[in-house]
């Protein structure tokens, strides 16, 4: 027994919900442009190819969605039970209709599949712009990123620099478990798998000069959430300057706290895990610190690179990032200040 009185408001609510869903769906396209990790505001050629494909599929889906939900809603409203025992004509099926709704979706899917497959093959081929590419090897570690530029002799961590307008060829692998390299502005993610090397390429736009956020996108254990990274797209000139700076050995600290910190560093456990080029420190367990002072963040994009944060990190890395692999005996507050001063000076 349907209470006819209460039926209408229910249907209205239902329609509102569906309308909400439709408008919500529409917003997906108009996503938050200020979200630094947004996937729909590409800043590279490859990112744009993905975005074009996504746009096509998205609008197809919207059409199907509106069609199906509209048909459903219309049917439910139009054919709701008005009184008990209504006679209903007993249709059993219609082969023509069945053929229709087999063929029409197939056509829609074909329209998606063809550009999908061609995009797959474009992504698989060598990059379209090959003059003077930048090659980077990305190595995932629990829970930080190592970036190596084999042709430029640069090794750095957590902050990747690339020149606008030159194609970057990224080779991704891992030192331990599976991670995934992902800077949404530049394009999709690529898994970092131990024993394997996956490659991808993209060419950052000139308009994309600036800072972009990225993050490990495969669950890799305790601190997966804090395995972040930054990509700096530089102008050609800035990039060259950056490379020059990174290639240089560590700047020797002249005097003061920084110099004391340097001596302390060489005597401390730090050198078993960290490399500072041109010194005794040749460890490979943690990030290369040769130019750590030039980075904007530490601990894989978790905190800003300030003297206070650095000192805090060195005194209590486990407090800042529970479970991370930097385990060391307690450092005194004054020592930590010295370390921080030294590391800040490594630009």
């Amino acid at each position: 027994m349907t209470r006819a009185g209460s039926l209408r408001p229910r249907l209205i609510t239902l329609s509102c919900a569906i309308l909400f869903a439709i408008s919500a769906g529409g917003c997906t396209q108009l996503a938050n442009p200020s979200a630094p990790q947004s996937t729909v505001f590409p800043g590279s050629d490859w990112g744009r190819m993905i975005q074009d494909l996504y746009g096509l599929i998205f609008w197809m889906a919207v059409v199907v969605f509106v069609g199906v939900e509209g048909f459903l809603l219309y049917t439910v409203i139009r054919f709701r039970r008005r009184r008990e025992g209504e006679a209903v004509s007993q249709t059993h099926g219609n082969t023509l209709l069945e053929v229709a709704w087999t063929v029409v979706p197939s056509i829609v899917l074909l329209m998606i599949a063809v550009p999908t497959i061609s995009t797959i093959f474009i992504g698989d081929m060598p990059p379209p712009v090959t003059t003077n590419p930048v090659r980077v090897t990305v190595i995932g570690h629990q829970w930080w990123w190592e970036f190596r530029y084999p042709d430029l002799g640069v090794v750095t961590a957590n902050e990747l620099h690339l020149p606008a307008g030159r194609t970057a060829t990224i080779e991704v692998t891992s030192a331990d478990v599976i991670h995934s390299f992902w800077v949404p502005k530049m394009g999709g993610k690529v898994d970092a798998i131990p024993t394997r090397i996956n490659t991808m390429w993209f060419t950052p736009d000139a308009a994309a000069v600036g800072e972009h956020f990225g993050q490990c996108a495969e669950f890799c254990g305790l601190q997966h959430a804090n395995m972040r990274m930054r990509l700096f797209v530089d102008t050609a000139a800035n990039f060259d300057a950056w490379v020059q700076q990174q290639r240089a050995p560590a700047s020797a600290a002249a005097a003061g706290d920084a110099q004391q910190g340097a001596e302390l560093f060489q005597r401390s456990a730090c050198i078993t895990c960290h490399t500072i080029k041109g010194t005794n420190a040749q460890g490979t367990i943690g990030p290369d610190l040769t130019h750590v002072g030039s980075r904007t963040t530490i601990a894989a994009g978790m905190i800003d690179n300030t003297p206070e944060n650095l000192a805090h990190w060195i005194r209590d890395p486990q407090g800042v990032k529970v479970g991370n692999k930097m385990v060391l005996p307690q450092v005194s507050e004054s020592d930590a200040r010295l370390f921080a001063a030294y590391l800040q000076s490594l630009r």
Binding site: I57, A61, S180, K189, A217
Partner: peptide, 13 residues
């Protein structure tokens, strides 16, 4: 939408 591999590389995980 996930079924399109290039698109899925932005959506996966």
């Amino acid at each position: 939408m996930h079924a399109s591999p290039p698109v899925d590389t932005q959506q996966q995980d």
